[in-house]
Design a protein around this nucleic acid. Structure first.
Lengths: 138, 138
DNA sequence: GCTTGACTTAGACATTGTCTATTGTAGGAT
DNA sequence: ATCCTACAATAGACAATGTCTAAGTCAAGC
């Protein structure tokens, strides 16, 4: 699991207890946490860590491309540590549950030049919405 | 342009000056406004309109399916009055400009059953990201 | 073991969105 | 046309999320 820590160190990241804890939280479980959830869990391991540090660290991880920001539609951004395998998201409109999914095809290729308006298009994000089995049962 | 107002009236919407103004703002230009921008423009036409009313009205328009909420990644949700023609979005990562686009293909069909995890998938949202000509020039 | 500049902290501040209690009013009833 | 009433609007407090600053702390190189 410390691939992440190794990579970061390799990039000249100054390794502090706080950053280690944030990285561990993200690397630990494969879920999509909000910044606040990351903070709560980090506090469990390092009680004096501050909110600002968590936000800063998350921002840096995103800049470095180690973590993805996911804006589904909830109020808070979520952070996805699965940045190295391209994937998209399936979101439950009712409870907000998120799953990683791997659709066929390449949506980037589906955007004709005439629809690019001179943009240099570099990335696509696909969000499927629906109802998860739990919410459907209720 | 008062198609929108007509449709709303037909659905039993109680027509107030405030709601009319909000609907006009959205119906007027084909842009993607934040709630706050809608409020500012509404204030221009009806100075005493309150923020809460704008939020309420936008929420109702979304529930009625007359307006779409777009969560690109900026802090604020944006509202897209183009709810009746399916389309997706192309966003400039630098300045945040948004264009409506119409890719080929149907991404819904590209999600195999094995990747649906028992969800009932009803909708897809595709966000292309890149750099707009303006920002590329700079 | 020093030094130094990058990192962290607490908490104020900013932005976006929600809620409540009160007041106002659209539109049907008379 | 006027009155009633339920629904809508208002101001402003509150909540949630994110950003900034000034001051203290510490990792890493010397």
């Amino acid at each position: 699991m410390s691939d992440l820590l190794e990579r970061l160190r390799g990039r000249g990241w100054r390794m502090t207890a706080q950053r280690r804890v944030v990285a561990e939280v993200l690397d630990g479980e494969h879920v999509h946490l909000t910044a606040d959830e990351v903070h709560s869990r980090a506090v469990g391991k390092l009680p004096e860590i501050s909110r600002a540090t968590v936000y800063n660290t998350l921002g840096e991880l995103v800049s470095l491309g180690e973590v993805l920001e996911v804006a589904t539609d909830k109020r808070a951004k979520r952070y996805d540590p699965n940045a190295h395998r391209p994937h998209h998201h399936l979101v439950c409109s009712q409870c907000g549950a998120i799953r990683d999914v791997h659709p066929n095809g390449n949506p980037l290729a589906d955007l004709p030049d005439a629809e690019r308006f001179g943009f240099t298009v570099s990335d696509v994000e696909v969000t499927y919405r629906g109802t998860c089995p739990n919410c459907a049962a209720a």
